[in-house]
Design a protein around this nucleic acid. Structure first.
Lengths: 222, 222
DNA sequence: GATAAAGTGGAAGCAGCGTTCCGCTTCAAC
DNA sequence: GTTGAAGCGGAACGCTGCTTCCACTTTATC
């Protein structure tokens, strides 16, 4: 959706078979990235999509471009999930529902979990979506806190980190959805006001997250 | 300690400088694996140790061998931490103390967190240590549960997974110790009987973990 | 100190993977 | 149908990182 549209106008639309192939590649990439994270190979993606490597590399000039596209889709879906949850009347339910969905997204796309925690370079479209996602998380959390359903000494960034951790470990170990939900539930119990014991340290701010990631990606690129 | 001792007896002890270099390589490897996980390169390790790549590769014939050695050390330390905690009189304190230490180990050695969740192939020495570690975790948890300090519907394997997740996300994102302790504390709150809401699914057993990992490492070796 | 074994550094070899290139095929406009 | 452009596959290329090899240096023994 991003790559193709560098055609201003007065230009031929993409050929039908090309469009079909592009979609196939994207689907294959999503699957393989989900299974193997960044370890998925172009050749593997091409094979699963039933095309040659050349085709993959024309539609997406570099592996990073392909990765960006998949990643952007993920953010889009998370934002959509958040909007759906926000429509719910009950703030507590909204928060819990969203958190389960967030973890599911991250588990399904191992890639996403990896990237959310490590890489800084994001395509412009994804940057916007990430901002939107953060705003939604903040709203969901603050509403739940105002309703007394969630302890007040944690921040949106804390929330994101905590559930990213749970999602990542279940995704990486190849566990199933039930196990993931189990751990999300434990995590949610830890966030209830009733359970709250004083926490060490201060709530994490989003700008701290960005600083951490910037520092890390500068030192060891991997 | 494992590689060198294939010398039965009536054989020269290793030369002094060789021993020194071996230790240096091991230290450098531990540092770099901790920082960059499996992404650390032999050349980087050699450079940090102040030796040539040839030297690294003679002491440790493959990268995996080096990795095994570092990993085995980690397990050893965890078992030692557990023994120390077990010596504590109060089961609740013992459990909490150990869990903080476990997360610290896993965060310090990003490698460990990765391997604990993904790879199956372990050197024989590490296999024994892993068993010992599991036994310790079980004992710490069961004592804490018997004392009413931890909810009874979670298993030792659940515990390991949960804290591995927290440790991994803080390690990968390069967060500091305070933040990690903060999240471990939230997690511990989630484990208190007072907070407990019914959990979906069944407690994870260690044999389930092994099955998961076996399946995963068979499908995508990465 | 002389000597032989042990150890060392780094260049060369090799393998995996992303990217490029080009002759051939397929589509779609006329 | 014909034709030209768009798209395709996969071999070839280059880069990066693990491993091997060997001429040279260091250690320890006599």
């Amino acid at each position: 959706m991003a790559t193709r549209s560098s055609t201003p106008l007065t230009e031929r639309p993409q050929r039908a078979d090309a469009q079909r192939n592009r979609r196939r590649v994207l689907e294959a990439a999503e699957q393989l990235f989900a299974e193997a994270g960044n370890g998925a190979t172009i050749e593997g993606i091409a094979k699963r999509a039933g095309v040659g490597v050349g085709t993959v590399c024309r539609h997406f000039p570099t592996k990073q471009a392909l990765l960006d596209e998949v990643l952007t889709d993920s953010f889009r879906e998370i934002v959509a999930d958040a909007d759906e949850a926000l429509a719910s009347a009950d703030p507590a339910t909204a928060f819990e529902q969203f958190v389960h969905r967030l973890a599911a997204q991250q588990a399904r796309r191992r890639l996403l979990a990896e990237q959310m925690a490590t890489d800084l370079e994001l395509p412009p479209a994804a940057v916007e979506l990430k901002k939107a996602m953060r705003a939604r998380i903040t709203e969901l959390l603050e509403r739940a806190q105002a309703a007394g359903a969630v302890r007040s000494d944690i921040s949106p960034a804390d929330t994101a980190m905590l559930f990213a951790g749970v999602a990542q470990i279940t995704a990486v170990s190849g566990a199933d959805a039930t196990l993931r939900e189990r751990y999300v539930a434990v995590m949610l119990d830890g966030l209830r006001p009733a359970a709250a014991t004083p926490l060490p340290g201060k709530p994490l701010q989003y700008r701290d997250v960005d600083r951490l990631l910037a520092r890390r990606s500068r030192s060891a690129s991997r």
